[in-house]
Every structure is written in C-alpha cells, then in structure tokens.
Amino acid sequence: MTSSNHSRIILFIAVFLIGTLTFGQKNKIALINSYLDKTHQSGLFNGNILIADHGKVMVKKAIGYADASKKIPLTTQYRFHIGSIAKEFDAVGLMMLQEQGKLNINDKVSQFFPDLPSWATSISIKNLLQYTSGLPDIKWQTVHSDADHWKDLQSLQKLDFEPGSSYAYNNNNVFLRRRIIEKVTGMPFNEFVLQKILKKAGITNGLVDPTDKDPFMARSFDNNFKQDGLEVPISGWTSLNLEDFYKWAHCIDTFCLINPSSTREIMMPVGQDKQSGLGNGSMDGDKVITHVHDGSAIHYQALVQTDTGKGRTIIILSNQKQGNVYEIAEAIEAILDEK
C-alpha cells in the first residue's frame, strides 16, 4: 500500500468516527482510542502514543507488538529509537557548554581537532547546528563504527560548498557535534547525555545506543515481520519511552536546561522547510510557541509536536514504520479541535 493510500485511510477513519460521537472530554478520549485501535487493526500503526491537552495527559496508549515475534504486547514502559530527534541532545549539550563558558558556537572545528584537514578552519559549531557546514554525508555503506568514520573525515579534502553558503541536512554535522562535546567535557558522549542531560531533566529510563541486553526496548520490524538489529554505524542515539519523552518535550518548552536565547539559536532553522538542532519550531519573545521534530531509523519512526498555546503535546513512537506519523497527528488534532 502506498503512503498516499495510508494517509487517505487514516483520515477516512478519523472523519468517519468524528461523526459518531459528541465532543465532551470523555468522548474525545473514547474517539481517539477508537481511532487508534482501528488504525492498528488496518495495519497502519504499531507503537505507543501520548496525547496531552491543556497540560493534562489524556491518552497514554500502547498498541501492538514489542517485537516481530507477535508474542510480546507493547506496554507504555517500552523505549523506542527516536531517529533524528536524538540530535536534540547534542544540540542542547553544545548550548549548555556555551552557557557555561566552555565553548562558543562561533568557534571553528579546527580549534578542537587541529589534525583534521584545512576545511576544519572554516566550519563553525554554528554551521554544524544549522547544517550549513558543507560537509558531505557519511558513507553509510562502508562506515560501521566511529573509528571508520574518523578515517573518512581525515581523508576528506574538499567540502561540497563553502560553509554558510548553502544547506545540507546530514549526519556528518551531528557526528562532529558529539565529538566536540566529548573533547570539551572529557566524557564519552553517551555518558554526557545520561548524566548531564537526561538526569537533570528528570528522565530516568533513557538509553543511549541500546543493546539486546536492555529490557523494555521495542524492536523494529517490517511489514513482513522481519526484525531489525540494533547495531548503528555511528554512536550516540538516545531511546526514550513515552513518559520520559513527554518530560523532554516539557523541558524544551520550559527551558529546564538552556535559556530562551540558547533555545532560539537551535529552534529556528536557516530557512523554510529546513531543520535546526531542535527540528523546527517558533518562539514569541522568550516563549516557545511550537516545537515539531520527526525522526526515523530502520523501521522506527517518531514524532513530537507541541503547541504551548493549547497546552498540547502529541508524541508518536512506532516500531513498524509506515511513514504516516504526521497524518495520525493531524487526525488526532482534528478530534481535539472538534473539526
């Protein structure tokens, strides 16, 4: 089934159900639960969802299987890979270090890694945060570890464009952001995230680069129920459950780790339809208005949407990627807004 057909079916289910109930708060919850159940029954969603409206969690739901065996039901305890949303932790980490006076985002990469080729003298941390560095993407077919990738960077002779002159969303920027944090703090990036970010944000169940030994880790699988491995070519990928993801979204909105100025620096992309360190969003003065970020890895897919004006957060975590998280969020919004 194509992605466009998925979208049509998801929205059809929502429109059909909206006509079956009136819009009291209890009925909204019942309608959302019915919609999510029918979406799962249609083969269009397997995963966990949290919905907060007017600052209160109204739906926290696990739907489907924890792995490809179809023997273990998901619960809300399960953690998921969140794909590119994990890049928020290195972006926030760099802003934390700037606020502590340990670096400046205008510093050049060569200041931290003088052994890299001459291009490192022209790329700033800010370029890495904005994806304007000119670095090419990682050679995913041949890179199997951080060490592999360091060799590629050390042999790279030419950038794709002059830093700051264009935009290219790729993980080379993220890789160097994480390595700079390690260089400045003297801590492995994974440990920095666990101790200096997650712990301070009140997140107790987060994992970085989970393994087969970690309990309550949802495993991703395709539509034929073939299960994926957990190996990753480069390190530093955070996995969260619904409760901790909600804490993280709230932390961004309330500046629990970095101030409004730092948040604005990594919230606002360099142009329309582009990404920043926090994905995408908007601010009015020192207040976050919206924050939207999606991510995918293997057959995982995740989405966080916050609207502080409505006190609303929608978090979607899937371990059977169907490419429809925005459509599911749109249908949920339609129910909540009585449309």
Rank of each mutant, 00 (worst) to 15 (best):
G19S: 02
T20F: 02
T20I: 01
G24S: 10
Q25K: 15
Q25P: 13
N27C: 07
K28D: 03
K28H: 07
I29A: 08
I32F: 06
K38Y: 03
S42I: 05
L44W: 06
G47M: 05
N48K: 09
A52I: 04
A52T: 02
D53Y: 10
D53K: 11
H54S: 07
V57M: 10
V57P: 10
K61W: 11
A62C: 09
I63A: 11
I63L: 12
G64R: 07
G64K: 05
G64D: 04
Y65V: 08
D67C: 09
S69I: 07
K70Y: 14
I72W: 12
T76V: 10
Y78P: 01
F80C: 06
I82Y: 11
I85L: 13
F89H: 05
F89R: 01
A91R: 04
V92K: 03
V92R: 05
L94E: 02
M95W: 09
M96P: 09
L97C: 11
L97Y: 13
E99D: 12
L103N: 05
D107Q: 15
Q111L: 13
Q111T: 15
Q111E: 10
P114V: 03
P114T: 02
S118L: 09
W119Y: 15
A120W: 03
A120Y: 02
A120C: 11
T121I: 10
I123D: 01
I125M: 15
